[in-house]
Amino acid sequence: MLTIIGIGSPMPGDQLGWQVIDQLQQLRQHRDIELDTYGSLQPANQIQSIDQIQLIKLDRPGSGLLDYLDVENRAILIDAIMSEQHDFGEVIRLDAHQLVAPSDSAVTRKQPSLLSSHGFGLREALLLASQLKRLPPECQIIGLNLYPSLQSSGNHIAYNSLHKTPAEREAFLSIDIRPLIALVTTEINSAEALRNV
C-alpha cells in the first residue's frame, strides 16, 4: 500500500500539499480528462495504480502525523519546502531517513528542548516516528521550494510572509506545481512497477 499525505492547511498560503492531493483525487475520479487548472497534466490513465493509493490531507499535524504512518506501507509526504540551496519553484525530493539520520538529526538535537506543539513540525514528527520505530522503510518527502530567490535574507517564520515584494508574491501565487505532480505520478508508477517485478 502506498500512502500519499499532503501537508498544509485550509488557509491560503499553506496549501501546496493539499492542492497536490486534490489533483490526484480528481485524477482518480475523472480518469479520462486532463486537468486544466494548472495546464495539461499527465493523462490520468498513465497513473496505473491510483485506486490502490491512500490519499490523505493533513492540517499541520505535528505529532499527529504518526497516526498515518505505517511501517508496512510506503509513504510519500508532500509539503512546501524552504531551501536557500535550491531555486524557487524547484522540485525537491528527500529521503525521510536521511532527515532523521544521526549525522543530520544532530542539528535538531542541538535544540530539542525548544519543542512545543507550535514548534513541532514535519522533521520533529519524523524524528519521533524514527525513535518509536514507526517510520516506514520507504518514506519520501517531495515538495516545491518556495524560498524566494529574489530576496537575499529573511526570517523563517512563514514562507508566505517572506514574499514581500509584489514580484515575489506574484511568483508565489502563480507557482507551477505541474513538475511536482509529474514526479509524484512517476513515483506512483514506479511503486506499481516494483510490485509487478
Binding site: R109, P112, S113, L115, E124, L127, L128, Q131, L132, K133
Partner: peptide, 11 residues
C-alpha cells in the same frame, strides 16, 4: 531534553 529523546527509552 525532549519527548523525542525520551521516546527511545520509553516507547
Amino acid at each position: 531534553d525532549s519527548a523525542i529523546a525520551m521516546a527511545e527509552d520509553y516507547p
